[in-house]
């Protein structure tokens, strides 16, 4: 959690620990950015008004880096425009001080779940990409057409080769990606972000 007020920081740290979370506190947004990378679900409890980098600015900076932190904003006086903007940008909650402890813990719980989910997706995506990278360019072409929904015969016509050859390529693709069916293959490509019938850059 990031808050410039020390007593608030200490009290919230204590509260989160009492709720069973591993809480780490930072006095400023800059301190948070300078921390060691933690590979796991993160909920960031973030004060809006701070000296230096403000809460919403940190939110933007993290989003640019594609970080997996989920943010719960806390503020001394909640104004509607700031809250709306923060929520639109994907904040989990926006709490006005002083808030109820249940409220905060509930929000933190939701944030961690969301963060976990995001991490999982990311891992899958990374795995899918890793496997796709193992394909030869010809195999990748075949995959793209398969994902488009083309039959072997059609793909052969498209690539000016024999249907038999395509069958072989397709078998290799399935094996390399660990897929057992065409829907499986489509699902895998989507996870990896491969658009149909387009070569990777």
């Amino acid at each position: 959690m990031v808050d410039d007020d020390e007593s608030v920081r200490r009290a919230l740290g204590r509260l989160l620990k009492s709720a069973g979370y591993a809480a780490e506190t930072f006095a400023s947004a800059e301190d948070y950015l300078a921390r060691e990378i933690f590979e796991g679900p993160i909920c960031l409890v973030l004060d809006v008004r701070m000296p230096g980098l403000k809460g919403p600015a940190l939110q933007e900076a993290l989003e640019e880096h594609g970080a997996c932190e989920q943010i719960v904003f806390i503020t001394g006086h909640g104004d509607v425009p700031t809250a709306t903007r923060a929520m639109k940008k994907g904040a989990v909650d926006f709490l006005t001080k002083p808030f109820d402890d249940e409220e905060l813990i509930e929000a933190v719980k939701r944030a961690l779940e969301r963060s976990k989910e995001q991490l999982r997706k990311r891992r899958e995506r990374r795995e899918a990409r890793r496997r796709i990278e193992k394909l030869t360019p010809r195999e990748f072409e075949v995959l793209s057409f398969v994902v488009m929904g083309l039959l072997n015969k059609q793909i052969a016509a498209e690539l000016h080769t024999a249907e038999k050859t395509i069958k072989v390529h397709r078998g290799r693709v399935m094996r390399k990606l660990g897929a057992t069916s065409v829907p499986d293959l489509v699902h895998f490509s989507q996870r990896a972000g491969v658009s149909p019938a387009r070569k990777p850059a």
Binding site: D5, S7, K97, D101
Partner: peptide, 23 residues
């Protein structure tokens, strides 16, 4: 507004500490 902001900090801390203690 400025008084409210000033006051909200210790109040938040007190409330959170109390909640932590209870837990």
């Amino acid at each position: 507004a400025s008084l409210a902001h000033e006051l909200n900090q210790p109040l938040t801390a007190i409330a959170s500490n109390a909640a932590a203690g209870r837990r």
